[in-house]
């Protein structure tokens, strides 16, 4: 819906577009340089940093892919991120459903306990978290990441989903109860499909956070075969410091899939990632 709003005249419009265009260039230019450099040779990057490549060295990608072991990192990142949002959406939507719909003593307190997590940056609890993960023999496993990501995603997910559940009219469930549906099947068959948009928001928010996280893999992981993409890129930068063609191709490999996914669903991404700060 297009709101009628403050619309300055033509001259101001041109000026505003000039500003917006200038900022767009600031944002896109470094990414463009990265893309250009990723298909040049190292010497060419140094001698001709801005121009078009003399020839497109597309094999840079396959070289960097193999040298850096990207297939392993992509698998690890995908595994951890996908599992995180699946488990997170499942456990937090169940809890949110109960908190939104059932009246029992302690409901409010339980909700507040979950919400208080919004104020606790998990990283600050990393010392006991680290020793606990070590003591239960989960150090250097992707499971450790999964557990921490799910747990740290719970407060925000429950906050969002409880509000969403509350906005759904009760008549829908009442009809299902009369039809003799059990508790779990009401949640799973009736309620879950109704909160689809909220699940998408929570899912995207946590997927991006998990996919991009660097801190917990840095703390928990030791072996290269467990590394996620950010840690893998760090490892690669340490090994191939002077081979800028490889470095730029590795950055491109890490960044471009995210850019493509974002371009396809930018509206959902923006909604998901700004959900915490934008009300309504």
């Amino acid at each position: 819906m297009e709101l009628p709003r403050w619309r300055p005249g033509k001259l101001t419009q041109i000026m505003l577009h000039f500003i917006l265009l200038a900022y767009s260039i600031i944002v896109l230019y470094p990414i463009g340089i990265m893309l250009l450099s990723s298909v040049k040779g190292t010497r060419e990057i140094f001698t001709n940093p801005y121009g078009w490549p003399a020839s497109l060295r597309l094999d840079n990608y396959s070289k960097a892919w193999k040298l850096a072991n990207f297939s392993v990192y992509f698998q690890n990142s995908a595994f951890v991120s996908v599992m995180t949002i699946l488990v997170l959406l499942f456990v937090s939507s169940m809890a949110a459903y109960v908190l939104a719909r059932f009246e029992f003593r302690g409901n409010r307190a339980l909700y507040m306990l979950f919400i208080s997590g919004l104020m606790l940056p998990v990283r600050l609890a990393v010392v006991p978290l680290f020793t606990m993960i070590r003591d239960i023999n989960l150090l250097d496993t992707r499971t450790a990441l999964l557990m921490v990501y799910v747990a740290s995603g719970i407060p925000f997910s429950i906050f969002l989903l409880v509000n969403f559940f509350k906005s759904i009219p009760k008549e829908i469930e009442e009809a299902a109860i009369i039809d003799g549906c059990g508790l779990f099947s009401i949640y799973y068959r009736i309620m879950l499909p109704l909160i689809g948009p909220a699940l998408a928001t929570v899912g995207i928010y946590n997927f991006i956070g998990t996919w991009n996280d660097f801190f917990f893999p840095l703390i928990f992981l030791r072996t290269k075969s467990k590394y996620t993409i950010p840690l893998g890129v760090m490892q690669f930068f340490g090994e191939f410091t002077n081979q800028w063609d490889m470095l730029f191709s590795s950055l491109t490999i890490a960044i471009v899939p995210v850019i493509i996914i974002f371009m396809v669903a930018s509206k959902q991404f923006i909604r998901g990632m700004t959900a915490g700060a934008v009300k309504g």
């Binding site: 809890a95 459903y97 029992f104 006991p128 606990m132 557990m147 799910v150």
Partner: peptide, 26 residues
């Protein structure tokens, strides 16, 4: 219905609340 809250509560307590309190102890 409380069983549905349990998994989230368990994960949250073990991996967030408990480490936080433990931080203070440490």
């Amino acid at each position: 219905y409380l069983l549905l809250v349990l998994p989230a509560l368990l994960l949250y307590t073990v991996f967030i609340i408990y480490p936080f309190l433990n931080s203070i102890r440490y």
